[in-house]
């Protein structure tokens, strides 16, 4: 039995992670497992930009992946970036094992909502987790703005899209899972 790992990095509220886990388990055909790590990934810190390089964190996580892990999604509160993009909500290894999602900007643009209500934040996290997971199974961005694989370049595009794949992406996603598992059995 393999699990999708949800691994926290930095400071993440347990209740939010638990909500996220519950929501995700209803949407993806895998069991989930949470791992908590409160350390900050200082090795990936870029002082000039006051941000963290997503790729560096991914590379490190990929080197220490548990043996019963199907895919690993890291959740963090630090602000992520790449050498070419000013920020990213998340990043994944295309067709690989590891992805990372940051709630930094998902939360920042959330402050005007009633305190204590984390539904919207969890919704946004769910969408970005499924999106990055899609990349881990080899999916590209989708042109359907309602599809979870639509590229999110702003909080509006995230809020606008659904928590699921469009028909085309869903088919591709399921086929990819089948493929990877067949491959593993052989």
């Amino acid at each position: 039995m393999k699990y999708i790992y949800l691994k926290t990095i930095g400071t993440m509220e347990t209740s939010i992670v638990e909500d996220l886990k519950r929501s995700l388990s209803l949407l993806i055909p895998f069991s989930l497992r949470c791992v908590y790590d409160n350390e900050y990934p200082l090795f990936a810190f870029e002082p000039e930009r006051n941000q963290y390089y997503a790729k560096k964190i991914i590379v490190k996580l990929a080197s220490e992946i548990p043996h019963d892990c199907e895919k690993l999604i890291a959740i963090t509160d630090v602000d992520l970036c790449t050498p070419v993009l000013t920020f990213v909500y998340g990043e994944a290894q295309l067709g690989g094992k590891v992805a990372i999602v940051s709630m930094n900007r998902l939360e920042k643009e959330y402050y005007y909502l009633p305190p204590g209500n984390t539904t919207l934040l969890v919704d946004r996290l769910v969408k970005e987790c499924i999106h990055e997971l899609g990349h881990c199974y080899g999916l590209f961005h989708c042109h359907d703005s309602q599809c979870v694989m639509f590229f999110s370049n702003s909080i509006f595009t995230i809020d606008n899209k659904q928590k699921r794949f469009c028909m085309k992406c869903k088919e591709f996603f399921e086929r990819q899972i089948g493929k990877e598992h067949n491959h593993a059995e052989k």
Binding site: K55, T82, P83, V84, L85, L94, H135, F140, H141, F151
Partner: peptide, 15 residues
């Protein structure tokens, strides 16, 4: 190299 890989990774994801 880092720019090349970072930009092409993103463009590839974008289809």
């Amino acid at each position: 190299e880092i720019m090349r890989s970072s930009l092409s990774d993103w463009l590839i994801e974008d289809g």
